[in-house]
Amino acid sequence: MLDSQTTLAAPQPVRFRGGGFTVRRHPWAALAAFVLLIGLWEGASRLGLASPLFLPPPSAVGAALAGMILDGSLWLNLKASLLRIGVGWSLGTLGGMIVGFAMGIGSLARAVGVPLVSAFFPIPKIALLPLFILWFGIGEPSKFATIGFGVFFPTVIATYSAIDSVPRNLIRMAQSFGLPWRSILRSIVLPGALPGILAGFRITASIALILVVAAEMIGAEYGIGAFVLMAGNLMQTDTLLAGVLVMSALGLTIGTLLSVLERRLLVWR
């Protein structure tokens, strides 16, 4: 009895039990995981566990990539694809934002637009390629069109739902203060819709990257998509993976650029 009383009285150190779920930064963890994965992959190939045909070792992929850089074909292919992605994405985004804004603000435009978007969005653009050839030819226009159409509909949806999600009470407050329509649009609706629109950009940028492969099915001489397709047809698996690597690096770059853009444009948050 006495013993227990003395222990109760004594100040007992309490273990800190909070903080188990807080996120800590591990800057090297991702890199280490990558290195480990590549090491395992290379090792499996070296030990003969994986056939170089089915899974080319990273060194072979690296050699293929180095070859592309040295003979200048990487730059040639990248330049052609970047032009297509740039023009196609810009056209699709511009059109999509105009239509999306109209649908977000005007109720008539929305009444017409929503069923139309629902009807046209699910059409696979690849199925339309033969038609695109007839409409736009096999030059650059059909490639811009394939990417543009693919980007257009998600942008419309992202834009009008972003405008929808602008807090109504802010708009009503502005209206009751007698702000003109234009200023409400410029200082409340546009900034309020921007996060949603930028999130849409992230999705459409990836869609553009996926569609560049489909677009370059149509008679493309150069282009990273055409390059990947050709390597696949020729069963050059190491070159194929090198092309895929370039595409995913491209995706990473575009994602990083969009993050910078988000940070810049959304300072008001």
Partner: peptide, 19 residues
């Protein structure tokens, strides 16, 4: 040589006078 992946696309380009 204009690679168009499959015969339907080749026919489309042919009929459209692209090749």
């Amino acid at each position: 040589m204009v690679p168009l992946q499959d015969v339907p696309k080749m026919v489309a380009a042919f009929k459209g006078g692209q090749v």
